[in-house]
């Protein structure tokens, strides 16, 4: 697959979109894979007991899932040289069904000297932003 080229990009262009479906099983799976066993991510009574609306997704699961569209667009996950986010709103995950997180990735800035592009991610759940200042820096040729 042809990889994107820096010279072809323009600020504001949407380069990738996607959706991530999170269910309880996915949270348990991420807990095991990451080693983050905080019960707010799998025990409903614990989560509501500390004031949350329901079990919530690991912020790191949301962050880690949505960047896949950027890695796939870049054609090389190792080209993602920096990635940051702010966790602005939790994603409640119901016992039945799924919580859908949508992502849109757009060119935020181009640094021709460094050979990098800053990709800004807009990440929403039910119309509200769940990540803030979510930016991935990608090295391209």
């Amino acid at each position: 697959m042809a990889r994107p080229v820096l010279a072809d990009l323009s600020v504001g262009a949407v380069v990738a979109t996607g959706a991530v479906e999170l269910d309880r099983a996915r949270l348990v799976r991420y807990a095991g894979a990451s080693g983050d066993f905080n019960p707010i991510h799998w025990d409903e009574s614990f989560a509501t007991g500390v004031g949350l609306p329901d079990v919530i997704a690991h912020g790191m699961l949301t962050m880690g899932s949505v960047v896949g569209v950027v890695a796939d667009w870049a054609g090389d996950p190792g080209a993602v040289v920096a990635y940051q986010t702010r966790f602005t709103k939790p994603v409640p995950v119901p016992r039945d069904g799924t919580a859908v997180v949508e992502v849109s990735a757009a060119v935020g800035a181009i640094d021709a000297d460094a050979g990098t592009v800053r990709v800004d991610l807009t990440v929403t759940h039910e119309g509200g932003k769940v990540l803030g200042r979510s930016q991935a820096t990608v090295r391209l040729s």
Binding site: R26, A33, S34, S65, G68, D72, D76
Partner: peptide, 9 residues
Amino acid sequence: AAVGAAHPA
């Protein structure tokens, strides 16, 4: 697999 990262690398 847990984060749904499907890239073959």
